[in-house]
Amino acid sequence: MLQVQNIEKYYGSRNNVTRALDRVSFDVADGEFLVIMGASGSGKTTLLNCISTIDTVSAGKILMDGVNIADLSEDALAKFRRERLGFVFQDFNLLDTLTVEENIGLALALNHTDAKTVQERVREAAGKLGIADILSKFPYQISGGQKQRTACARAMVAGQSLLLADEPTGALDSKASKNLLEIMSAMNRDMKATILMVTHDAYSASYADRVLFLKDGRVFNELLRGDRGRAVFYHEILDVLAALGGDVSDVF
């Protein structure tokens, strides 16, 4: 579904260049749950921003169903974002002026859906994520976990097929994290959503089908879960991290 080919990303001016991504390549299959791991500053957010069209690459290609997203017209890009893409930020990015229900329905409402359908689909998504009873509250009235589930609901309510999540559990406590990860797992399993999640936390990563390790902007290693249980996979991830030189104590 998604092919990332040799992308590079530079930041900064001529005399002070940061190379955030360095010839990164990988494919994401339909329905896959892929996690990208790496220490802080390794380029995870940059990678996700490039894929989500929030940012543009300096070199290389990102193909979506075989089409380079850099070649899309503004309208086609908008359609892509509208219909295919869901994004979950670390810091939620909910609009404080809107209720939970309105935050979730925003994408639908801003597009062509009629009011009744918007409401039905919001209810349905909220039910799946266990936030049906807080729909009329405002973001400042709910907990971090509830906020992140709201953001997830927003990212999937329009039936988006690709869910991008940038450290979605970064601001949550372990119980809320676990809850969110279970939900994402279920979305991947039951709704066939393709998930690309970025994290620096091995426990979160253990929910994936496959883990890519990023270091200094390069893909360093790859780990497939296969048929192993989550606990086993978790320890393997920790092993790779140790080899990577990451600070294991900081991971959990």
Binding site: E74, A78, R81, L95, A107
Partner: peptide, 15 residues
Amino acid sequence: SRELGLYILCGITNN
């Protein structure tokens, strides 16, 4: 700006 950024991410064009 954050709000407008979200709109665009939700698939609204700059126009």
